[in-house]
């Protein structure tokens, strides 16, 4: 099938950038979106043009490296799917597809579709350590965790940190990401001692990095390739507001 790709091209972080249209005439419907971009890039290279820069790693939908906006939706029109697992059969012959990077002040564009996601690492880092003992594996039944609790913690831990929630949010808020990271620890006994302090620190960091606030639109959940629920945001809010009431405020240097 034939597609017209309108792709955001930007030479570097300081370049203004613009959309460039690329007709691709022989898209196979069993290609993934990234494979189609590979084909386009081969041709651009042969013509002596700079190929389109985009991130990818596992191409199995589990690593969180890939991701960009496909016609206005993070990771494209298919629900619960990363861009690498988005197949071309979901597009119509003759369609024009707009491809642009995830946009947020805290996730600046480096080149074309590649963004700098180190802000997400900074949020996780702000959460700090857990005081649970590590080392050799503990005895399996030493700490009993109910199956529904373990399942919910796992649902939160499903977050791959791709940034789609931020890209989809009208406010470029990182609440779903932060909520997932706070909750997968906060639901388990090992995460209890620092549960509220962690929420306070990570939210403060998110704020400092220039992410927007949550208006409870629900766009993040709809865009999340892992289906992380906004229920975790409510949980984060509980931990954060509870922490505000119960925890001692930290010196500014720690936040």
């Amino acid at each position: 099938m034939k597609l017209t790709l309108r792709i955001w091209r930007q030479d570097g972080p300081r370049d203004k950038g613009k959309f460039v249209a690329y007709p691709v005439d022989d898209v196979a419907e069993d290609m993934s979106f990234l494979e189609m971009l590979d084909v386009l890039n081969e041709r651009l290279t042969l013509k002596g043009e700079r190929p389109v820069a985009f991130d990818s790693d596992c191409r199995e939908g589990i690593c969180g490296a890939c991701g960009f906006m496909v016609s206005g939706v993070a990771h494209g029109p298919q629900k619960l799917t990363t861009a690498c697992q988005l197949f071309m059969r979901h597009f119509k012959d003759g369609e024009t597809v707009v491809v642009e990077p995830f946009r947020a002040r805290a996730l600046p564009v480096l080149k074309d579709l590649v963004i700098d996601r180190s802000a997400l690492d900074a949020i996780v880092q702000a959460g700090g350590f857990i005081s649970a003992r590590t080392g050799s594996a503990p005895e399996a039944n030493a700490m009993l965790i109910a199956k529904p609790v373990a399942d919910r913690a796992m649902d939160a831990a499903a977050c791959i940190g791709c940034g789609a929630c931020i890209a989809a949010c009208p406010n470029a808020s990182a609440m779903l990401f932060t909520a997932a990271k706070v909750s997968h620890l906060g639901l388990l006994p090992q995460g209890q001692p620092e549960r509220r302090q962690r929420a306070l620190r990570m939210v403060a960091k998110m704020n400092e990095l220039g992410f927007g606030g949550c208006s409870n639109h629900g766009e993040c959940e709809a865009a999340c390739p892992k289906g992380v629920s906004i229920d975790f945001i409510a949980r984060l809010n509980r931990d954060y507001l509870g922490g505000s009431l119960l925890e001692k405020p930290e010196p500014l240097s720690n936040v």
């Binding site: 959309f19 016609s71 642009e100 009208p170 606030g213 409870n216 639109h217």
Partner: peptide, 29 residues
């Protein structure tokens, strides 16, 4: 304060953006 911060969080908008879940009421608060 929240509205201003939210607008500053995405200085460059999208050429195309589709809403999947939000409502008109939510966007016009």
């Amino acid at each position: 304060l929240v509205t201003v911060a939210n607008q500053q969080a995405r200085p460059q908008g999208y050429a195309t953006k589709r809403s999947l879940e939000t409502s008109l009421a939510a966007r016009t608060m």
